[in-house]
Design a protein around this nucleic acid. Sequence first.
DNA 1: GCCAACGTTGGC
DNA 2: GCCAACGTTGGC
Length: 137
Amino acid sequence: MQYWLIKSEPFKYSWDQFVADKRTFWDGVRNYQARNNLMQMAKGDFCIFYHSNEGKEAVGIAKVVKTHYPDPTAVDEPGDWVVVDVSPEQKLKRPVSLAEMKADPRLSQMGLIRQSRLSVVALTKVEFDIIVAHSEG
DNA sequence: GCCAACGTTGGC
DNA sequence: GCCAACGTTGGC
């Protein structure tokens, strides 16, 4: 079991849209590191759903329901890009802001903060649990 | 709107 | 294969 954080601009694809869809394929990744992370995702892995730009906060938890397959939106593009299927697991009781995560020294090493541009980053179970704890605190 | 960080591209 | 130039992302 692994843990991840996936970023989306709410303008492009918001948590509410995700919940309405019940399931989506996570497309648009055009970065090799992020793609490699997608390829490592296993069925049942949990992902923190993070709103970038607008909001800048973790808003929910998604679950990987299908492992990687070719990105249907990238068939005409060079490179082998992939997507995974994810479903909403639960909404966080309250969003956890980036400022709050930055303020927690236990999260200072997490991928989101170390490499803020990466759209799919790995989390440790500890980091995942800390974020969830913040949302309940 | 600016800027920092980082990835990608292309000339050599 | 190196490195400068450029583009993109995302926080502020």
